[in-house]
Nucleic acid binder design. Sequence first.
RNA 1: GCGCCUGUAGCUCAGCUGGAUAGAGCAACUGCCUUCUAAGCAGUGGGUCAGGAGUUCGAAUCUCUUCAGGCGCGCCA
Length: 581
Amino acid sequence: MIGSLNDEIDIFLSSLTGLEESSFNQIKERYSSTVTDDLSKGHLTTNVCMIAASQLKKNPKELADKLQRKLIDSRKFEKVETAGPGFINITLKREDFISTIDNINLQSSNFGSSNHGKDQSIQIEFVSANPTGPLHVGHGRGAAYGDAIGRILKSSGYKVQKEYYINDAGRQIDILTASVFIRIYEEGLKGYFPKNAYKGSYISDIAKLFKEKHKPGNLIDSRILIKDLPQDEEKEIDELILRIKNKENKLWIKIKSFALSKVLQTIRTDLENFNVSFDNWFSESSLGDLNANDSKISLAIKSLKNKGLAYEENGAIWLNTIDSGDDKNRVLIRDDGRATYFASDVAYHKDKIDRGFNKLINVWGADHHGYIKRIEASIKGLGFDKEKLDVQLVQFANLYKDGNKVKMSTRSGEFFSLSDLINEIGTDAARFYYLSKQADQHLDFDLNLAKADSKENMFYYIQYAHARICSLLTKYINENSSMPKMATAVANGSYKNCDKLIHEMSKYPNVVSRASSSLQPHLIIFYLKDFAHFFHSFYNDNQVLTESKENIEAIIYCLNAAKIILSNGLGLLGIKPIEKM
RNA sequence: GCGCCUGUAGCUCAGCUGGAUAGAGCAACUGCCUUCUAAGCAGUGGGUCAGGAGUUCGAAUCUCUUCAGGCGCGCCA
């Protein structure tokens, strides 16, 4: 119905004298017709007169009066009123007003989806946690967010690919391998354990599995490996890694791939349990080696060199990122010939762009924001539009249990893992709380609240509405064997108690489209909370099943639509609606 | 020092490309279960939207500035 209103408005605009085409287009661009906040303002409202007035330097109220007359003459609406500083409020004809519930019931699980992103492909890269241990609570937020915007964009018609970037080529993996190595040989090494190695119990588990499967023999000389290691904890572990690689190279490679696959398996399982799926897992190591001339990483750097953006200084290769707004240039290849993490990332982003996506979304932890400029610079340097890349920052979540902050650190092994969280409150409640606040804001995740039985707990408040509807529908079906096909009593206006609910439902498509264009799933959560409130209020005021047969039929038809709204909204967040509680 | 983010009720937060009297939950106080799920509903009180200036018919929203808080600034990943 908004489309039909806008058509009338456009006709009105083009009938205005003294309106140039450029300002006509500007007005068209800027004005908006929306569903009103509440029924006291009618069903639809438009601010076009205020927008047009500022362009034309005319009185908005006079314009509104003119438009009002036009709209009344069109006979398309029940009532047209001017209000406030120049709003036009529209009351729809009854049949148009209730068309919303017909649409919802008809489109069912497709209601709210659109083809806004038709023929556009978006790639979302998220989580991408280093494969050095299980996912912790901090990763959960990025996982929930990336997955949710994936679902939302998909429902808006975009072709979406979700990707996990596996950092399997850096020093962190060496430390992981060394940690497992030490655990395998801990007896021979008399309990020695480097200060900077991973201490989590999963390391010992992996070591144990390795021993069972590969039955490794004794080391050639275990003591020499740990003799006179440097005191400094960073140097100690680096030296240890070097020694193991030299002395036990075959074993090293074997343990490395074993540990990596075990950790990745854990991560995949955690994500699966969290209802997060990826379409593609991309390994950093697949970018190849700097020594190979045709590897992706070599080619990317060569391309930057050819463009004169990468240069040599002090024995290292640098990328000029200052010209793109960074505060200093960055090293791609160290003076000892090893590539930096940044170099891999440049090659990785080149690869992603080469794959032909219209847009790339990176979901990063907020601590990486200093990194955005240089990655944009590299994209620009490679000859791509930096607008193609959209970095969404996700702030860390602090976890509170019984009023105390829960500490997190992968290194020390003292952390609350994502799977702990899932065990504690369940996948759906966890996803819900992660998404309940704008992603780039700090989130205090209160475990006690997430389990609470009160309205403060939005998750159950919304689910409760769904469960209550399901219960009513079940009762209805048991007595009538089939669902009603229309809402006659609501349509002819003899029963109006559902009107608020219907009006609220008509806002849903707009909410989804806003969530989609702003990449903010929390908008859906807050809408659902408001919607649940409208339902609970209705439920308290109306003893549904004691109404007349005709009214019951109409109400059930409306409530089925309400159920679809709740279920679709939760679905976009990757949450299953609860049928009974 | 530079960069990014934030400041809305006692607390936790919503607030749409600027729009109509600034919203919700919690906490406080009042009511509502012999009837479909009380994890619910209805009501009362509570605000200089951090301060100041500007743009505008109109500012919590945009711009500038001051103050306060958080984070980031490696040839780490």
